[in-house]
């Protein structure tokens, strides 16, 4: 039986489907391959190569860059960076969780307003937001002047240029990234879950601890990654608020590329950050599967 419309043949239809798939996917994926995956390959390759005399690299294989990274001097910097980033992440969770939980208790239109207010600073200039703390905490700054005028202190306090100032700056920069994923995990929990726990005899506190908290855990982990990863590799906050005394791994990487011109060693340090990111995502995916269940498991 012939159709009234001219048949194009199955091959033509298949070809067209393939063509449209290519039109949509190829440009973006090519761009990502050329400017992210290949550069990542460069970093990995550099870690095994030798440093050039005037910066750059020489194609001589070596594993020395890795052994150098294990030097107590650099290992110390790495550990200090991880400690500062972990402290920031834990504080962000301790403050961010109650905030996210409070937002879920508001009426929907107020929820949206508060989320906008919390996320808005995040989208503004990072340098300026960090600099704003210098204006506020400087020895001649607002806070010190205010405290002196109120007679609380007689001498200005040195609030900047120490590790706690770095933690403060990182917390300020990234706490919205902790609040948002926790919020979205919390609002996705069926309210019947908590009611079921109470109906089965749990006190509200038990229901929170045994049901709400575990179900929000995947969101907490996403938030932790979003705070930890940019914190551990940050070099602006340590430089502006840490006063250069507390060097973090981000500063070290920057210096290897722009000052010391030891690209291979800088690459090893950068790769360690990428590996940390991948490990965290792996953990997050596992917890996600454990908590929310997986039909295939």
């Amino acid at each position: 039986m012939a159709l009234a419309v001219k048949s194009e043949g199955r091959d033509a239809i298949k070809r067209r489907a393939l063509l449209s798939r290519a039109v949509f996917l190829v440009p973006g994926l090519t761009y990502i391959t050329a400017f992210m995956l290949i550069p990542l390959g460069f970093i990995i390759a550099y870690t095994f190569l030798s440093r050039g005399t005037y910066g750059g690299i020489e194609f001589i294989f070596t594993a020395e860059n890795y052994t150098r990274a294990l030097d107590s001097l650099y290992l110390g910097v790495l550990i200090k960076s991880i400690l500062i980033a972990s402290t920031t992440t834990i504080l962000a969770f301790l403050i961010g969780f109650p905030v996210a939980y409070a937002i879920t208790k508001l009426p929907t239109n107020r929820q949206n307003l508060l989320l906008v207010l919390i996320v808005l600073p995040f989208w503004t200039n990072f340098l300026i937001r960090t600099y704003a703390w210098i204006v506020l905490l400087n020895t001649q700054g607002f806070l010190n002047k205010g405290l002196i005028n109120m007679g609380v202190i007689s001498q200005p306090l040195e609030l900047l240029y120490k590790p706690s100032a770095i933690v403060l700056g990182l917390l300020y920069a990234y706490i919205p990234l902790m609040i948002l994923p926790i919020y979205s995990a919390l609002v996705r929990i069926d309210p019947a879950m908590k009611e079921a726990a109470i109906n089965l005899g749990a006190t509200p506190a038990q229901a929170f601890r045994q049901v709400t908290l575990p179900l929000a855990l995947p969101g907490v982990l996403v938030g932790a990654i979003f705070v930890f990863v940019p914190s551990v590799g940050n070099f602006i906050v340590p430089e502006l608020l840490g006063g250069g005394k507390t060097i973090m791994v981000g500063n070290l990487i920057r210096d290897q590329f722009l000052k010391a011109r030891d690209w291979p060693f800088g690459s090893v340090l950068a790769l360690s950050m990428v590996i940390m990111l991948l490990m965290l995502f792996f953990i997050q995916a596992r917890v996600n599967r454990r908590v929310l269940g997986d039909a295939r498991a």
Partner: peptide, 9 residues
């Protein structure tokens, strides 16, 4: 992705 890693790559 860590911006520093993207930048040096």
């Amino acid at each position: 992705f860590p911006d520093l890693a993207l930048a040096i790559g």
